[in-house]
Design a binder for these strands. Structure first.
Length: 276
DNA sequence: CCTGAAACCTGTCTGC
DNA sequence: TGCAGACAGGTTTCAG
C-alpha cells in the first residue's frame, strides 16, 4: 500500500480525523500490547509496552514512508508500513482485525491498531528518531526540493533511473507505483542511466514526480485489490499494472520488465530509449 | 558504485 | 476441487 501519498493520507487521518475516527492527538496511551514481537524493531517488545504506557500523543507527522507519532517526555514512535501494514483507530470493544500485530489502548475508549498481514512492518520507540531517519534523502514535496536539487541527487550516478527513484537515500517516499507513473509522465525510459539526462529531462522528471505525488495525496492514495483503504489514485494509473494494455497517450501496448527486482511498467513509444 | 539474488511473510489469482 | 507457481505498494544484507 504505502508510498508517500498513502502514508501521508494515514498521517492526516490520525492528525485531523478521518477514515471513520477522530484525531488521536492529545490521547494518552493507557496500555500497549505487542502480539507479534518482531514488529518492534526497538526496543524489545516488553520494554516497548512499558515505555509507551502513560505517554500522551502530541503530534503526528510523516518523513518519507515513515509515520511519526510524537509523544510527550521526548519519545517518538516511528512506524514503517512496508508492504501490507495499516493503522486504524477502533473502539476498544471492537473485534481486532485478523492480522493485528500490536495495538495501543487509549484513555478515551479507542484503540490504535496496527494490522499487517505480511509481518514486514516495523515500529521503533525512541528518543532519537534522527538515528533512524538520517539516511533518508530529501522530501520531494518540500519547497527546497527544486529541479536543481533533483539534478544534484542524480549527478554522477550511473544506475538506472528506476532503481535510483526507489532508493530512499536519493529521494524519500517514492515507491514502485509512483516511480513508474512519474517516469511515464516525464517521458523517460526506466532503464536510462541517471547521469545521461539533459537539464530539460531532469526538469520534466521533477515536474512529473511532484505532480504524481500531489495528485496521489489529493486522491487519498491508491487502493489495490484486497488492500483497499479508500483512496482513488488507482483510477489515474497510466502504466502501473497495465502490461499489455494500450497506452492512453499513443496506443502502444504497455511493456513490463524487471528492474531492481521490481515490476516496471512503461510505454516503449512515449518513453523511448534515446539511441532511437 | 552497481547489479542481482535471497530473505523476511501471508494472501490472492491463474493455469493445469 | 486441488495444487503449484507467480505475484504483490518495501527494505536489508550479501556476493560478485
Amino acid at each position: 500500500m504505502p508510498e508517500l501519498p498513502e502514508v501521508e493520507t494515514i498521517a492526516r487521518a490520525l492528525r485531523e480525523g478521518g477514515r471513520g475516527a477522530g484525531p488521536i492527538v492529545h490521547a494518552r496511551v493507557r496500555s500497549a500490547c505487542v502480539l507479534w514481537p518482531p514488529t518492534v524493531a526497538e526496543p524489545g517488545p516488553r520494554a516497548f509496552e512499558r515505555l509507551a504506557q502513560g505517554r500522551v500523543i502530541t503530534g503526528v507527522a510523516r518523513r518519507g514512508k515513515y509515520l511519526l507519532l510524537h509523544l510527550d517526555a521526548g519519545w517518538t514512535a516511528l512506524v514503517h508500513l512496508r508492504m501490507s501494514g495499516d493503522l486504524q483507530v477502533l473502539p476498544t470493544e471492537a473485534m481486532l482485525p485478523r492480522h493485528t500485530r500490536l495495538y495501543w489502548d487509549l484513555d478515551d475508549g479507542r484503540r490504535l491498531v496496527f494490522d499487517d498481514p505480511r509481518k514486514f512492518g516495523r515500529w521503533w520507540l525512541t528518543q532519537n528518531p534522527q538515528s533512524i531517519l538520517a539516511p533518508l534523502g530529501p522530501e520531494p514535496l518540500a519547497p527546497d526540493f527544486t529541479p536543481q536539487a533533483l539534478a544534484q541527487r542524480l549527478r554522477g550516478r550511473r544506475a538506472r533511473l528506476k532503481a535510483l527513484l526507489l532508493d530512499q537515500r536519493v529521494i524519500a517516499g517514492i515507491g514502485n507505483i509512483y516511480a513508474d507513473e512519474a517516469l511515464h509522465r516525464a517521458g523517460l525510459h526506466p532503464l536510462r542511466p541517471a547521469n545521461t539526462l539533459s537539464p530539460d529531462e531532469i526538469a520534466a522528471l521533477w515536474q512529473a514526480l511532484r505532480q504524481v505525488l500531489q495528485e496521489g495525496i489529493a486522491r487519498n492514495g491508491a487502493s489495490i485489490d484486497w488492500m483497499y483503504r479508500g483512496g482513488e489514485f488507482q483510477n489515474e494509473f497510466r502504466v502501473y499494472g497495465r502490461a499489455g494494455q494500450l497506452c492512453y497517450t499513443c496506443g502502444t501496448p504497455i511493456q513490463r520488465v524487471r528492474v531492481a527486482q521490481r515490476s516496471t511498467h512503461f510505454c516503449p513509444r512515449c518513453q523511448p530509449w534515446p539511441s532511437e
